[in-house]
């Protein structure tokens, strides 16, 4: 079980979110731009420091104001995928995946798992956006992460590629049985992928909910800011 309570003061409001995500489930964070979604996911990865609260994976604290613990991102073993520009431009796809990989044999396995074996020797600028995000997923999984964090991973892709990668992510989630936390603007994506949903508004969250009772809380796709 991955759980957290994050308090972080921002310029106009305080982010105050409690979340929990068991292994094998996908928790979706939705909300309008500037509602604090990315702050939450960056805080979970250790890229931003919360003002108070805790982050815990199983029995181990990654952050706790009470216990005075703050692990660096490299000590947390998370997989993280940004919206774009995640890959190192000076490395080939295979070397990008190998970057954080402890076992070199895992690179081949991930290239196959994400269907990008043929791109192993390509540089990021030589491949399409969808292929780059597949490679980014492989890179994130190469560290054998305890938790997978996805910050709007498909938002820069066209509709067809997005649908393909959503299916791919669902397949990976079922196979790897990791806690997965994903930020998205897309109500369809949230509906299709999320086992749990949290809707953020000015840093405040609705209660973690099941797929059924959370869906009405999501605004219609047309009302979401672009």
């Amino acid at each position: 079980m991955f759980e957290a309570h994050i308090l972080k003061k921002r310029e106009r409001f305080t982010v105050d979110v409690r979340l929990c995500c068991p292994a094998g489930e996908l928790l979706v964070l939705t909300g309008p731009s500037g509602s604090g979604k990315t702050t939450v996911i960056r805080t979970l990865a250790g890229l931003e420091r919360p003002d108070a609260g805790y982050i815990r994976y199983r029995e181990r604290y990654w952050f706790s104001t009470e216990e005075r613990i703050l692990l660096k991102p490299r000590q947390r073993r998370v997989g993280y995928v940004f919206q774009e520009h995640t890959l190192f431009p000076h490395l080939t796809v295979a070397k990008n995946i190998a970057y954080g990989c402890r076992d070199p044999r895992r690179v081949d396995e991930l290239l196959s798992m994400l269907h990008i074996r043929h791109l192993a020797r390509s540089r990021p600028h030589e491949i399409s956006g969808g292929e780059r995000q597949r490679a980014a997923l492989a890179q994130a999984l190469a560290t054998d992460p305890q938790v997978l964090l996805l910050d709007e991973p498909f938002s820069a892709l066209d509709g067809g590629t997005r649908a393909l990668l959503r299916a791919e992510l669902k397949r990976l989630q079922n196979r790897l049985r990791l806690p997965v936390i994903m930020v998205t603007h897309d109500a369809d994506e949230a509906r299709q992928l999320g086992d749990r949903h949290i809707h953020l508004c000015r840093g405040a969250a609705t209660e973690p909910a099941t797929r059924e009772n959370a869906l009405p809380l999501l605004p219609a796709a047309s009302s979401l800011p672009v």
């Binding site: 990865a45 250790g46 991102p73 490299r74 947390r76 970057y99 954080g100 190469a142």
Partner: peptide, 9 residues
Amino acid sequence: EMADVLGSS
């Protein structure tokens, strides 16, 4: 940030 998350000092 990505390098940090991937375990680099």
